[in-house]
């Protein structure tokens, strides 16, 4: 291989049974053409420290085991290009088992709670006839490799709201809920806010290594399915949104939150509210839209009749 000199890699190290605190170590390794981050880590293992702990298996983004942070960006080591002076760290928000390996048990639990299996009747004649068109929404979803990169960047998951399942879990849920063969009632039953809390920020979509549009292919269809089944009952968040557009032609986040959430929920999140207020993300002053009557007319004209 044509060597083009050396490169430096800074790696997060931590053995919780021995080290008091995590530390970083910098290694120098030969650079190879088209090198991936995983090549660099394997090279460190071969040249410097055989004990550097990281997970990898398939080497072609099918197993989803080599998720880590490279210069703060959540990536799969097997596909990310390596570059000099990069900093490699474990995925955030999870307990470190050792070095770059994190304990993903909490995420797995979230997925398992959503009954990640198809509940179906056995077809009368097998294989049954299925139109490919009916399965289109599932195509991309079934390529999910559960690498948890999306979970590690999800801002809502970070808030720790009880019940919010996180993008990866919602992909697994959508994969079953949107399957025409599935018989379980998944979206109508209200046990927790496993998907309605998603704020549609697209962070998960941006990091997905297998290009799943988590938002448009999983979360939005789940919300739509729920809306159809339980209109007005649990979809308060959405119906208040519609109400605000109809009556005021303007969505003021403060009013939206105050109307949509119950008092205990508001009370529990009072600190988040204060933080938002201090940062100027929400305001207590309410603006009014001029010529509101004209806008109401547009709304009325475009409203879909039930």
């Amino acid at each position: 291989m044509n060597d083009m000199g050396f490169m430096r890699v800074k790696v997060f190290r931590f053995d919780p049974t021995k080290d008091q605190n995590p530390y970083y170590e910098t290694y120098e390794i030969p650079y190879e053409k088209d090198m991936r981050v995983l090549d660099a880590l394997v090279s460190i293992r071969e040249i410097h420290d055989c004990n550097l702990a990281f997970r990898h298996s398939c080497r072609r983004r099918r197993c989803g085991m080599c998720g880590m942070l490279v210069n703060g960006k959540a990536v799969l080591a097997c596909h990310e290009a390596a570059f000099s002076d990069m900093v490699v760290e474990p995925l955030p928000k999870l307990p470190v088992i050792r070095d770059l390996i994190v304990d993903t048990k909490s995420y797995e639990q979230k997925i398992n709670e959503l009954r990640p299996y198809l509940e179906r009747k056995k077809a009368e004649t097998e294989p049954e006839l299925i139109k490919p068109y009916d399965m289109l929404p599932l195509r991309q979803l079934q390529t999910c490799i559960e690498c948890y990169l999306c979970m590690s960047v999800c801002p809502v998951l970070e808030l720790g709201w009880p019940g919010f399942a996180g993008p990866s879990a919602l992909v697994q849920m959508a994969r079953r809920a949107l399957d025409p063969r599935d018989l379980l009632e998944r979206t109508a039953e209200r046990t927790d806010n496993n998907f309605v809390d998603c704020v549609s920020c697209y962070s998960c979509v941006n990091v997905c290594p297998v290009k799943i549009n988590v938002l448009e292919d999983a979360v939005e269809p789940l919300k739509a399915q729920r809306q159809k089944k339980v209109i007005g009952r649990w979809a308060r968040f959405n119906s208040v949104f519609v109400e605000l557009v109809r009556d005021r032609a303007l969505v003021n986040p403060t009013v939206w939150m105050l109307k949509a959430f119950s008092i205990p929920v508001l009370f529990n999140n009072i600190f988040v509210g204060v933080r938002f207020l201090m940062k100027g993300k929400i305001s207590l002053k309410s603006k009014n839209v001029p010529n509101i009557e004209d806008i109401k007319k547009i709304y009325k004209a475009t409203e879909v009749k039930k």
């Binding site: 291989m1 190879e32 053409k33 088209d34 991936r36 090549d39 394997v42 080497r59 097997c78």
Partner: peptide
């Protein structure tokens, strides 16, 4: 090459 993809 690279080594990681030697297997695809």
């Amino acid at each position: 090459h690279p080594g990681t993809w030697r297997g695809i």
